[in-house]
Design a binder for these strands. Structure first.
Lengths: 220, 220
DNA sequence: ACTTCTTTAGGTGTTTTACTGAATCCTCTA
DNA sequence: TAGAGGATTCAGTAAAACACCTAAAGAAGT
């Protein structure tokens, strides 16, 4: 059987070298590519010249999910294995939804990584124990009411609230938002209060982060 | 001559494995320790059982400088090599000041890392080209004025300002920040104002985004 | 018709921001 | 060694934003 062709994506070149070296003595595995971004890899990866792509993610960025989705679409034969340094359910689910077939965390080791690569090449999914624990806990929470309601609310911002949130997260002041939407400053305050209550946020700082996480605004 | 004993500090175990593997075929180098934090290493490192400690840092945290300083004090014979995933002049200078004898960035590769380890063991300092370029540009900045001053300001947040920014961007209120840093709320306000003036930010929303962009805090 | 949610907005008191000034400490340099 | 300059500390004052509450008009569904 041919060697398993593995491509790496890690924004830090040293880490690419490290993983490459980590897998160098596994005779069935061959590293065929290293890229700093998923976008780069998509361009480099002609003719599906890889069985497995390991994408290393350091910070939870919703955009990564889109990029992985794009990667899966452009190269359907490639199996994507995410190695995330964070353990945020929401993000991990996003990656799975985007088409990632496996997920490891920083708790992983060489053997698990090799096992994951083999498993993915053979057409099966592979999730680290730390991940499956998360997923299990998430399912068990599913029957819960409070938790479910919270998650529900998280998606049910009204149109107006979205507009206010968007402008606020773009550094508009309350007065500017009020003028632009032809409403009172007090109404803007109300909307912001309601947003925070709905999503269960403590401060406006959290509101900014929420907007960034959900791609309502850019980080720039 | 004895092998060079190298200890690793990386909060992500996989990365420790990766670097260990990366250096495994260098016959003169032997990895003797792996820790997730500098604090852990200090406790594990009896009798200066290492010539070089590689500390991998992902986000710019002033506390890391203090920990490295402590490490240098407790184990004077150990040479500290920092591998930072960021390139913020201010922080790099802090690490050097704290006693780090070398500094690499994510742009580094195996050969450079090996060279750095050898150099440090021999009692000399080693800074990656990307770092020396930063330092050079920093010195040359004296000539230009307006344009260069902006870039200057953008990277010259003081330690205290960094601490305040970090806590603020982690959703702490001014009062909480004040209590934690044992200063007045008015002082916290001053620091926040100074940060915004230095980096030329309009609102606190921009400040949150700045912190996220520069990996000072995460998005969640 | 009734409930529920959205959108609107005000009251009141607290917190944060904008802008300014200023004292103390540390470091670097002439 | 004295002075310049930045870092760190704190305060006064007016404006803005926030927390917590109430509440009315309208739209949508049961």
């Amino acid at each position: 059987m041919d060697k398993i062709k593995v491509a790496l994506v890690d924004e830090h070149p040293v880490m690419c070298d490290g993983i490459q070296s980590l897998l160098s003595d596994v005779i069935d595995i061959q590293i065929v590519h290293s890229s700093r971004t998923v976008t780069d890899l998509i361009q480099k990866l002609y003719f599906d010249w890889a069985n497995v792509v390991i994408v290393v993610l350091y910070t939870p960025d919703p955009e990564d999910a889109e990029l992985i989705s794009l990667l899966c679409k452009k190269h359907p034969k490639v199996q994507v294995l995410v190695l995330s340094m964070y353990r945020i359910e929401n993000m991990i689910f996003k990656m799975i939804k985007a088409g990632a077939k496996g997920h490891l965390t920083s708790e992983t080791n060489r053997d698990e990584m090799v096992e994951a690569i083999y498993t993915l090449r053979n057409g099966f999914d592979f999730y680290a124990k730390t991940i499956t624990n998360l997923i299990l806990r998430n399912y068990l929470n599913g029957s819960d009411e409070a938790a479910e309601a919270r998650r529900e609310r998280e998606k049910s911002l009204s149109t107006r609230e979205m507009e206010v949130l968007k402008l606020f997260a773009r550094s508009y002041t309350n007065k500017e938002i009020a003028d632009r939407l032809f409403i009172s400053v007090r109404t803007v305050e109300s909307h912001k209060n309601n947003i925070m209550r709905k999503i269960n946020l403590k401060t406006t700082v959290d509101m900014v982060k929420f907007a960034i996480r959900n791609n309502i605004v850019d980080v720039y």
